[in-house]
Design a protein around this nucleic acid. Structure first.
Lengths: 169, 169
DNA sequence: GACAACTAGTTTCAACAGCAACTATGCTCC
DNA sequence: GGAGCATAGTTGCTGTTGAAACTAGTTGTC
């Protein structure tokens, strides 16, 4: 409940080791949330990316497109961009690669010729039927040490941070 | 306390919406911790990177080297690599750039000619004296909505995840 | 003390991401 | 209905990154 020993405090006085002159600001990256969070997310991402890459030759962008396709029947490149916060060029190339491999189809929308409707092929479905349970199993193992409460609270705090992030830009 | 509504459960039966046939595995990325975490960390990182970049012309790698230098008197490229988990090529380039800008010095260690001791110059110190408080203020604002307990628990859970990550590779 | 094995750091190279320019289509408003 | 603007998606270009090859210096072994 008290925050005396958190980074918020050291942010105020700028000291990390006692006895240090406070005229020399230090930053302990291990106590700096943006760094810690990024470091953790990076390592998780990289571990998973290895799974996608080695066993299915998918990079992260391609994997994300497939994941969204797994539960969206109407999907376009634009939607993928907004959902995943990826650059449209990156999405475009991911879609191209997936189409060339025959995992998805890409047909101009009859309603609006600028849009292309994306759909999984049978091969794409089959690959996801293998890949998704593996990814979920991996995640389950990752969070296995967390209690249900910890897991719920983590998601909660992340939501709070996301909201605050939007507020402060 | 119950986990019925967490992703761990949907990982088990593979359904996201009720009534769905369980033969079609879906993955809701919004409920998938690796993705959520990465997405959040990315946005935080990018927001901060903008601060470094716009006002100080530093990229993330350079900033990390400086941050470590702010509280390590004896630092080498190798140490930066292990501390920050960055590739040694990336670290090498960051150090090169910082040296060219006169923010750090890089002298061969008298003990071992392969190593290079890194030190902040006066200019580097001065820049950090400005930059670090700004970064800490930004972080303080980011976590301002969290209670002390939430903040502490977040760090705790992150530590747990890190440990588990090492275990499962 | 020389040869092999190792380590710190740099450089080269290929892949990729992101920006910006571009094409093609659709929309609005006079 | 056509001029101007907006939108979806593609492509060219540039900079960054990471893997691997490479250099230079060190340690261990005989």
């Amino acid at each position: 409940m008290n925050r005396e020993d958190t980074q918020a405090d050291s942010a105020r006085d700028g000291t990390a080791s006692p006895g240090e002159l406070s005229t020399k600001p230090e930053l302990d990256l291990d106590q700096f949330l943006p760094y810690r969070l990024n470091s953790l997310a990076d390592r998780i991402s990289q571990a998973l990316a290895q799974l996608y890459e080695e066993r299915y030759q998918l990079n992260i962008a391609q994997w994300r497109v497939l994941a969204w396709l797994s539960h969206c029947d109407e999907l376009t490149a634009k939607k993928v961009c907004t959902y995943t916060n990826m650059d449209k060029a990156r999405v475009s190339r991911a879609i191209q690669a997936l189409e060339e491999r025959g995992l998805i189809t890409r047909t101009p929308s009859p309603r609006d010729q600028r849009l292309h409707d994306l759909h999984l092929t049978a091969a794409g479905q089959a690959m996801l039927a293998e890949l998704i349970p593996e990814a979920q199993a991996w995640e389950a193992e990752l969070v296995a040490t967390l209690t249900a409460g910890e897991y719920r609270d983590l998601l909660n705090v992340m939501r709070k941070l996301e909201r605050q992030l939007e507020r402060i830009g």
